[in-house]
Design a protein around this nucleic acid. Structure first.
Length: 651
RNA sequence: GGGGCCGUAGCUCAAUUGGUUAGAGUACCGGACUGUCGAUCCGGGGGUUGCGGGUUCAAGUCCCGUCGGCCUCGCCA
C-alpha cells in the first residue's frame, strides 16, 4: 500500500513534509508496518570501533517509525517484515526495478522497488534523489547470487511494499558518500551534511566514548563532577578573554573561562578533594590546526596529594582509555623526564618519542674548526647542535635541503649546515673548513656511517633547540621513522617556574601563577628566581601537549611573593583574584591538578591532525561559524540595553 | 601583526607562452532500460573564472587592492 503523501512532487525545491500520521498516534495497532516483535527491545549496534562490542538498547514504544536500523539486518532476518528509515544515498533506476541504498548512521541497506508489486509506488521510488528521507516497509530477502561484499548488510535486501517520503532534500552541495571531499569552507557551511559522513560520525562516536570512559574512570575513583560558572571574572593572565557584557551592571563584563582554574582551587579549599569536569574553555587567540577558540578540557583537581599522586591517577586514565578505545595495554608508570633533559635531547618540551633522531652537541668540535660561523657562535656563547638522518643521504637533494634551510629559518636559524657521509668522510660545501681530525670527531660523535645525512645549526641555545626540534619532526615524518598509528605518551616534569620576559623586563609564569615551587628551591625565590623549579608536569603524546598541570600554591604568603615577581602588585592581585587569595586564608589544603585537552585526545586517538574534524560545530581560522554566521552584528536595541556603543575603526 | 598556498559549472578539477565560443567527470533535468550496487545508454540545461581596479590589441592566466578558506611564525599558562 502506498501512503497518501507519496504522490510525485513538483520542482526541485520542496516544502517540508509533514511527518507521517503514524508518528503521532500512540496506538500501535494503527501501524500496519510494524514487524512482529512488538514487546522486545530493538538492539542498535553502534558503529564498530576497535575491539569493543557495545550495544545501545532502545525501548520500543508506540511512536517508532522504524523497526530496525540500516546497519542491522542479516540473513537471520530473512522473511521478516521490517520498517527502515533513512537517507537516500544512491539510487539505480531500471524503471521496472529501482534500487535505493538507504543510509543511517548505523549502515546502509539496499531497498528494492519492484513495479510488479505497486506501480504507483514505483513512480515515487523513481523520483527519489540523494538525501531524501524515506520510510520503507517491506520484507527482508536473501540476495543470493547478488551479494554485495562491501556492505555489512550485503547478504540481504529489503523488498519494499510501502514507501513514505518523510522529507525531500534539495540537491545537496556535496554528498556524504563522495570519495573526494569538497573544500572545507563548504563542509563547514553545510555541516549538517558533512556530519553525515562516516568519518565524522566515527569521530563523534569516538569522542563520546572517550568522554564516557573518562567519566567512568574518575567516578570509580570517587571524583565528583562539579560544574563551574561560564560567566566569571577575568582570570589573571594568559590568553585574551571573551567578554560578556552585563545588562544589570552597566559597564561591567563577565569573562568566559579560559579554564576553571580558580574555581577548582576554591573547590579544594571547600573540601571537595577529588574534582573533575569536562569543561568548556574559551581563549580569544589566533587559531591553528589544533586550536579552537572554544575547546574542551578534562579538568581535574585533588587535595592532600603530591605531584606523583596526580601523575599516577592520570597514568591510570591513559591506560584506561588505551584499553577501552584501542584495546591496548600500556605499561605504567608512563616515563617521566625532566624539562632540561627533553630540551637537550629533543630541543622541545613536547618531544615526539615515537622515533629517536636525538640532538647532539658538537660545540667543542665547532670551537676548534676553521668554519667561521661555527667557531664564532661558540665564542659568543652560542651552541652548535645537530642530528643524524640515518641513511637519508640519497633522499634529500640539494634543492630539498634548501627547502629545509628555509623551513628552519622560520624558527630563527640563520642557516643549516649539512654533511653527507661518504667513504668515511664528510662531504659538504663547508667540509674544507674542517680538518681530517674534525671529520672523524664529528662522525664519531654523531654515530655516523656512510649514507647518513648530518644537519647542524649554530646559534643561541633557544634557536638551536627550536629549529632542530622542528627539523627533527619534519624529518621524522618525511623519512617515516614512526608508525603513525602508534600513541606514545610521557611526562615532562621540573619545568622552571619563571621565564624572563626581555621586552617587559620582568618574570613571566612559565605555566601559570598558581604553581607551587619545588620546596627545596623556595629560598631561590628571593635570590635567583630563574633557577626555581616548579612542581608542574606536562603530559606529552606524539609531540603534542596533551595535558598540563601543577601542584598549586596553597599558602597566601607564597602566592603573594610569586605575584610580586610576576609584576602583579598587591592591589592588582586583590582586585583581579582577591577571592582566591582570600579563600587560601581559610584553611586551604595542599592541592594540585591537571587539565587534559579533550579535543586533542580525540585527535590523537582518531589519527586526525585537524581539530575541526573532532568537533561537531567548529569555527574557522578567523573564529567564525560558517553554519550559523556567528559572530554577527546585533540589534541596536540589544546594545542600548547593555549600554554599549560600537566604535568601529575607520578603514 | 608577518609569511605562504588556494578561490573556474551544484561539486571535484582542466584550460599550452596572455590568444577561437572557458572544457571534462560527476551531480541535475528529459528519455530508454526488471538485478543494479561508482548501474548503463541517448539527449539537454548549467559560468559575473570570489569581488574591485589596472596593464594589454587581447586577461581565468600578469600587476595592485579586497573578501573568504587553509597552513604557519608571533600569540595561546
Amino acid at each position: 500500500m502506498l501512503a497518501q503523501r507519496t504522490v510525485p512532487l513538483p520542482g526541485a525545491i520542496l516544502p517540508t513534509f509533514p511527518r507521517p500520521r503514524q508518528s503521532k498516534l500512540p496506538d500501535p495497532s494503527s501501524r500496519r508496518c510494524i514487524a512482529p516483535r512488538p514487546a522486545s527491545p530493538i538492539i542498535l549496534p553502534q558503529l564498530a570501533l576497535g575491539r569493543s562490542k557495545r550495544f545501545l538498547r532502545q525501548k520500543r514504544n508506540g511512536g517508532v517509525l522504524r523497526t530496525h536500523t540500516c546497519g542491522e539486518l542479516r540473513p537471520e532476518h530473512i522473511g521478516q517484515k521490517v520498517t527502515l528509515c533513512g537517507w537516500v544515498q544512491n539510487y539505480r533506476d531500471h524503471r521496472g526495478l529501482v534500487f535505493v541504498d538507504l543510509r543511517d548512521r548505523y549502515g546502509i541497506t539496499q531497498i528494492v522497488f519492484n513495479m510488479a508489486f505497486d506501480d504507483e509506488m514505483q513512480t515515487v521510488a523513481r523520483s527519489l534523489r540523494s538525501e531524501d528521507v524515506i520510510q520503507v516497509t517491506g520484507e527482508v530477502v536473501s540476495r543470493s547470487g547478488n551479494v554485495n561484499p562491501k556492505l555489512a548488510t550485503g547478504e540481504i535486501e529489503v523488498v519494499a511494499r510501502e514507501l513514505v517520503v518523510l522529507n525531500r532534500s534539495k540537491r545537496p552541495p556535496f554528498e556524504p558518500s563522495s570519495p573526494d571531499l569538497p573544500n572545507e569552507e563548504l563542509r563547514l557551511r553545510y555541516r549538517f551534511i558533512d556530519l553525515r559522513r562516516p568519518a565524522l560520525q566515527k569521530a563523534m562516536l569516538l569522542r563520546h566514548r572517550l568522554t564516557k570512559a573518562t567519566r567512568d574512570y574518575f567516578d570509580r575513583l570517587g571524583f565528583l563532577d562539579i560544574e563551574t560558572p561560564m560567566l566569571g571574572k577575568s582570570t589573571p593572565e594568559g590568553a585574551r578573554d571573551y567578554l560578556v557584557p552585563s545588562r544589570v551592571h552597566p559597564g561591567c563584563f563577565y569573562a568566559l573561562p579560559q579554564s576553571p582554574q580558580i574555581y577548582k582551587q576554591i573547590l579544594m579549599v571547600a573540601g571537595y578533594d577529588r574534582y573533575m569536569q569536562i569543561a568548556r574553555c574559551f581563549r580569544d587567540e589566533d587559531l591553528r590546526a589544533d586550536r579552537q577558540p572554544e575547546f574542551t578540557q578534562i579538568d581535574v583537581e585533588m587535595a592532600f596529594v603530591e605531584r606523583d599522586d596526580i601523575l599516577d591517577v592520570i597514568d591510570g586514565l591513559v591506560a584506561h582509555l588505551m584499553k577501552e578505545l584501542r584495546g591496548e595495554e600500556v605499561s605504567l608508570p608512563l616515563p617521566r623526564y625532566s624539562y632540561r633533559d627533553m630540551l637537550e635531547r629533543y630541543g622541545t618540551d613536547k618531544p615526539d618519542l615515537r622515533f629517536g633522531l636525538e640532538l647532539v652537541d658538537i660545540g667543542d668540535i665547532a670551537a676548534e674548526c676553521d668554519f667561521g660561523v661555527f667557531r664564532k657562535t661558540v665564542e659568543e656563547g652560542g651552541r652548535v647542535r645537530g642530528l643524524n638522518a640515518k641513511g637519508a643521504m640519497e633522499k634529500y637533494s640539494r634543492k630539498d635541503i634548501d627547502g629545509l634551510t628555509d623551513y628552519v629559518s622560520d624558527f630563527g636559524a640563520k642557516g643549516l649546515v649539512f654533511f653527507r657521509v661518504k667513504e668515511g668522510r664528510l662531504d659538504s660545501p663547508v667540509a674544507k673548513f674542517f680538518s681530517e681530525t674534525h671529520h672523524q670527531a664529528i662522525i664519531e660523535r654523531m654515530g655516523a656511517e656512510n649514507g647518513d645525512l648530518l644537519f647542524f645549526i649554530a646559534g643561541e641555545d633557544s634557536v638551536t633547540s627550536a629549529a632542530l626540534a622542528a627539523l627533527r619532526n619534519r624529518l621524522g615524518k618525511e623519512l617515516e621513522l614512526y608508525d603513525p598509528n602508534e600513541l606514545k605518551c610521557c611526562w615532562v616534569i621540573d619545568f622552571p617556574l619563571f621565564s624572563w620576559n626581555e621586552d617587559e623586563q620582568r618574570w613571566d609564569a612559565e605555566h601559570h601563577p598558581f604553581c607551587y615551587p619545588v620546596v627545596e628551591d623556595l629560598p631561590l625565590l628571593d635570590s635567583d628566581p630563574g633557577k626555581v623549579r616548579a612542581q608542574t608536569y606536562d603530559l606529552v603524546c606524539n609531540g603534542c601537549e596533551a595535558g598540563s598541570g601543577s601542584i598549586r600554591i596553597h599558602d597566601p604568603v607564597v602566592q603573594q611573593k610569586v605575584f610580586g615577581l610576576l609584576g602583579i602588585s598587591e592591589e592588582e592581585a586583590e582586585r583581579r583574584f582577591g577571592f582566591l587569595l582570600e579563600a587560601l586564608r581559610y584553611g586551604a589544603p595542599p592541592h594540585g591538578g591537571i587539565a587534559l585537552g579533550l579535543d586533542r585526545w580525540v585527535m590523537l586517538f582518531s589519527g586526525d591532525d585537524n581539530i575541526r574534524d573532532v568537533i561537531a560545530f567548529p569555527k574557522t581560522q578567523k573564529a567564525t561559524d560558517l553554519l550559523s554566521g556567528a559572530p554577527s552584528p546585533v540589534d541596536p536595541h540589544q546594545l542600548r540595553e547593555l549600554h554599549i556603543k560600537v566604535d568601529l575603526p575607520g578603514k
